[in-house]
Design a protein around this nucleic acid. Sequence first.
DNA 1: TAGACAAATGACAGCGCTGTCAATTGTTAA
DNA 2: TTAACAATTGACAGCGCTGTCATTTGTCTA
Lengths: 340, 340
Amino acid sequence: MKATINDVAKQAGVSIKTVSRVINNETSVRPLTREKVQQAVAELNYQPNLSARNLAGTKSFSVAYIYDNPNAYYIIDMQNGILSACKQQGFELVIHPCDAKSENITKEVVNMVKHARIAGLILTPPLSEMPDFVKSLLELDVKVVRIMSGDEAPDELSPCVMVNDRDAAQTITQHLIDLGHKNIAFLAGDAEHMSTIERYKGYRRALKASNIAFDKSLVIEGEYSFDSGVSGAKKLMSNDNKNNRPSAIFSCNDEIAAGALFAARLMDISIPEQLSIVGFENSPFSRQTWPKLTTADQPNDVIAEDAANILISQVRKQKNQTTMSQYVPKLVVRDSSGQC
Amino acid sequence: MKATINDVAKQAGVSIKTVSRVINNETSVRPLTREKVQQAVAELNYQPNLSARNLAGTKSFSVAYIYDNPNAYYIIDMQNGILSACKQQGFELVIHPCDAKSENITKEVVNMVKHARIAGLILTPPLSEMPDFVKSLLELDVKVVRIMSGDEAPDELSPCVMVNDRDAAQTITQHLIDLGHKNIAFLAGDAEHMSTIERYKGYRRALKASNIAFDKSLVIEGEYSFDSGVSGAKKLMSNDNKNNRPSAIFSCNDEIAAGALFAARLMDISIPEQLSIVGFENSPFSRQTWPKLTTADQPNDVIAEDAANILISQVRKQKNQTTMSQYVPKLVVRDSSGQC
DNA sequence: TAGACAAATGACAGCGCTGTCAATTGTTAA
DNA sequence: TTAACAATTGACAGCGCTGTCATTTGTCTA
């Protein structure tokens, strides 16, 4: 059957407590002893029993990923990244889907954390952007790592992994400018999402950098949905707006961009000849539209793995902890953007 | 702090063993006693400690979902459904992404099952369609429930939840026939996937039922990808094939259909006026194409929850077990199919 | 070389629960 | 009413590990 700590102790000729010390990387073990134990561990292919550890110890070896995000590809990428870090570090992952808009979301998650003895949480937008929610969790003396949009952490509540949407948005807007566009519209995602705000800032900054006058009428409020893209693009390209039509549209994500594409088709506007449309996120379906979308790509699994590793080192109370890291999404040029 | 079995026992005035009997639904507890215990459980909001149960007992309260499927929406739906069943039944879910084509996939999963003391597994295609893999798992004395394509279980290895793609494919083909189409092409998914085979059978059956001659040249082999849809549609609609062009295309899934749509656009074929295209699966992006796809919808989360419940009742060795249930995807008519 | 101290190691209880088996109840037939 | 039996309940060990604290070992100084 499976080897236990007793088997290892016997094999190495030490007490189980010493084995425990070795597998927990504690000090006060002579190098020679440590080696003997490690060899025994290897020979027996010993893996500590998580249930026993959780039961006996005060520490916990479980972290949770809480998600509320309609984008399945995003979640799966995140989950896979987290899972890979957990596996390497001998942690268990508890998955908890939820509804951020639910009234008792805090109570629900607090309950889960208590009951499952969770040591740490990984939060992605929109949950990571709800300060009160985060504060309630922190009171439980559970570690938190947030993945957020921006170039630096908004506060000191927890370590953060930042996705620099601003710089990426500037780059992608610059791409349009380089193609000769001057009337560039902006189709916003949900206004309360940090990512919308950041992407908007990047858009503005690119315009400014190229001395292009900002035209407020080219900014359309909306949400992260296909339908929002459809109606936004219709508004921009309608006949009522004949004199003010943009030659390019920056969509806050690929879904909005797909909606804009759809609207363009309805209005017989050819892409990219008459209108350039760019997205953001590089979801798989940005390759499955016609034409394929120019967009910004972020390595979600890498980001998630990074976040999980930071979380685990927090849980382990290791020294020299990272409290921030940053990723900048990369421009991916495809067929939906072209010369003005 | 959290209530333990001791607290409940004290509160109810019985021994912990009796509490254990009640929470495990064992017989040999007097109704009155049971009631007392249940009340104490409710008052203290007691939830059994999974680690302790796993450690002490011979039973396990963990099931695993193993997935290898490029379709993130499918996985998330499945996962959410399984999770909801697990939560209700007090089981823990272990998530295990993997690569079905990897050589040592069996060894990897066997290891996982042993180490995490998994009581049951839920398998979705393509893993559920690998008999040798399933057999190896069964040898571990772990319960398995497979979600598969077809109208009845292919064998007695395990309980199955069947998705009747055949009937659904017949319905969707019939829909095209009802619109007046007689030359209906078939863009296949991966040939080794049961779903491709089943959908093909349904397609054939619909033709036969309406006395439409089957034309082999209208069947294009391929795989479940956008690109496969592009090349398949190009082949069908090319000038070389001028005399044999179909008026409608049945695509084995939405991704293929999106590819076909893309190809049609490249060739200046208007949808659905000159060509009808239907998909299968009702993925979110089937609503985000232009025009929106007619497709077949299956309630993946319900299917998954059903499968998880069957699995758990197997694990619990309950009587009157379901060994098969069946779902038939429903036709969803949108804009990509029209009169011939 | 012994004594003093720190470093290394081990003995043991106990985490919350289940399995085993013994003790206690209740029920039935004679 | 009581023996005989079944149904119900409980006592206790132990799952694999960690935390606490005692013991042993090694090292350094005088």
